[in-house]
Design a protein around this nucleic acid. Sequence first.
DNA 1: TTGAAAGCGCTAACAG
DNA 2: CTGTTAGCGCTTTCAA
Lengths: 347, 347
Amino acid sequence: MKHVNIKDVAREAGVSTTTVSYVLNQTPSQSISPETTERVWQAVRTLNYVPNLNARSLTSQKTNLIGVVIPQTEPGKEFMFANPFYGELLSAIEYTARRNGYHLLLSGPDPDQSYINIARNRSVDGIIIVGSYPSKSLNELHQLAVPVVLVDTYVKDDVFHTIGIDDRLGGQLATRYLLEHGHRDIAFVSGSVSEQGVVQKRFMGYMDALNEYGLSMNEKYLYLGTVSYDFAQSVAEEMRLRGNRETAAFATADILGMGLIKGLRRLGRRVPEDLSIVGFDDLDVARMSDPSLTTIHQNIAEKGRNAVQIILDAADGVSGKQERILPVSIVERDSVANLAPQGRINT
Amino acid sequence: MKHVNIKDVAREAGVSTTTVSYVLNQTPSQSISPETTERVWQAVRTLNYVPNLNARSLTSQKTNLIGVVIPQTEPGKEFMFANPFYGELLSAIEYTARRNGYHLLLSGPDPDQSYINIARNRSVDGIIIVGSYPSKSLNELHQLAVPVVLVDTYVKDDVFHTIGIDDRLGGQLATRYLLEHGHRDIAFVSGSVSEQGVVQKRFMGYMDALNEYGLSMNEKYLYLGTVSYDFAQSVAEEMRLRGNRETAAFATADILGMGLIKGLRRLGRRVPEDLSIVGFDDLDVARMSDPSLTTIHQNIAEKGRNAVQIILDAADGVSGKQERILPVSIVERDSVANLAPQGRINT
DNA sequence: TTGAAAGCGCTAACAG
DNA sequence: CTGTTAGCGCTTTCAA
């Protein structure tokens, strides 16, 4: 049961380890006679040989490993993804990577040990970082000679690749949709607005749409907390406490929208009759809610696929920073009431 | 920017690489003078040295890597986890692993390349396999000298560790709860019943409870498909087609319960008034649904933690197969109507 | 078309 | 307390 290695194969096939290596890797610069080749494969099969990728990476300087960093919902919290968004994204990343012969090294961000280390000491071939992080820790990554893809963040950087969606437009579409349906008092419910995160952009989109209608933002309509179901649920109560009279809300994540629905219902208010809601992400769960959630659709799977693809490109020698923006669109479901059937404007 | 290695550190500190290795690993059998130790750390810091774990594993035969295999919802399908269950589980696994100095190598099961290979060629220190797989591919893993933890499956095996919950009891609790509430015509909605999977046990629990009440199973009340929201939604229609008169349903996964709620609503039927539902898993989303889902609770995070712990134990030399069963309990929410207020029995 | 040999970066006897 | 040395399993010049 001891590990069979390339030497064993060489012996079995009656050739040198070099030759075995050549046929295994189909090294282009080398030609091996068909007979030898066959003999080697034969040996591989009978010995049930599997190359040791660790050893291979040691010489080849290639690990076929992609590091993936997924954020915790809240700092110091145990769980990365109460939000199914990450599951969907990770799923697509994993699939694409595997299809291309890469494996995933998964990690949450460790506050103590910045993830640059896991990248360096495992010598991954690329890194995908999801979400926004302090630019300090990102800068460390510049030391690496490895392609880095930033997903869903707006840091300015000349080297790191980025992939995201048009969050500002998304925020605008969501808000405009509500405006078109006659709403004028529109709450903004969201996780905290971090410097280079997506929320900030979505907020700008919210403002854009208000401006289109000659409205200005009302601070009392802003509800900022964490991107969690529980927070959103508490917003319903907060709305009442503030004595506000919103007729609609733009929630910057579907789980927020869903929490809000629940919170309202607890207070005996109905969606969309008493409050209309537009979400963001178009998660699977958005259609599971009742009423199903009108939301901004983004192609999460595509995001994941692209992230991997950028790494693959870089590994293939494609040079230069890549920057991809995926489209967003609004998905009409049942969480918005129309206060003004005639109220549509042209865009 | 070239990789600084242990040699560089040795030179910088004016010692041999051995010494550097000793202080870095704090090798117990070796004692190093405080001065030397300090000098080495100094060098490490100034050179910003990070050990290459690949090289280390090559000699130490230890990778500090745990392989995790998560199933696809449907074979051949791209996405592993439309079901948030896996996100929650993975999250706990990742966290526990990281806290103990391990990283995760994530993989879906590749039909072509059985996962034994990824285990062998990456030489992971342990493998966590979630879900049920053909025992053939599992058997291959016996060739490995590595601890394997099977999560949520009932294969009989003398070597592999297992961790799961009492699925049968869960099924029983769910069904009994419905019976206690006066229901007698209880549908069983589920993914397909695979040989050694959890569904089979949950189904047995369903039968157990029926038997307690002197009832026998009605085949027309069985709805088997895939563990997906969409399937469950279609079940509502199927119920009507079959002309059945269930007053309740036991759904073996929360997402099934939620899909069923939605499907029923589409047909103008209400939960729990027209049909009561009990789910399974107690996902975050269970409380998000409307009505919130009465369900069987299992501690998903604990499952993940235990899975990792078993690997750690094995790595620490704890020998013998471990078999852990975590408790289940019922969580009462709003998806069950009481047809018989007096109908409780003692257990 | 094949092989010998030098390393990749690190650990671990074994000496000293 | 510290260093020499021999690998771990594989790739890759370079020579034959």
